[in-house]
């Protein structure tokens, strides 16, 4: 194996190791003891809704509101997903129909966007 490939392998392995470090850190810090500290329990309980809201923003971060098509495909997609989910409570239906609506919007309705 050439030095270049060996270095590339090293990069992958370092990335893998450090990713596992970030994921296992809370379990190493708080996982051993019998009782998890109350502050961690509090965060563990209240973080998920906040983090999901953040991830929704993350998913929509590349929307340009001030240029054509002014975020309309995203608005259509988001409204379809939320509307369907509040109405029918069916994960797959909400996600598939919402994604399909978005794909139709970006590929056919609002062309020349990408």
């Amino acid at each position: 194996m050439s030095a270049l490939l060996l270095h590339a392998l090293g990069i992958v392995l370092v990335t893998a190791a450090m990713t596992f470090v970030t994921r296992s850190a809370p379990f190493v810090l708080f996982g051993k003891k019998r009782g998890t500290p109350p502050i961690v329990l509090f965060l563990g309980t209240y973080l998920p809704p906040a983090i999901l809201a953040m991830l929704v923003v993350y998913g929509l971060k590349d929307v340009r509101l001030l240029a054509y098509p002014y975020g309309l495909p995203e608005l259509i997609g988001v409204a379809t997903v939320v509307g369907l989910h509040v109405w029918k409570r069916n994960y797959l239906l909400s996600i598939f129909v919402g994604t399909a609506a978005y794909m139709v919007a970006v590929q056919w309705v609002f062309q020349g966007t990408l």
Partner: peptide, 26 residues
């Protein structure tokens, strides 16, 4: 546009979290 499925997933889970909590402040 297929990548929107990920955003849709986060949205659906957010709706579920919204319903699971009495406070929506988080």
């Amino acid at each position: 546009g297929l990548g929107f499925a990920m955003t849709a997933l986060f949205l659906v889970l957010l709706v579920e979290q919204w319903e699971a909590f009495r406070t929506h402040e988080p």
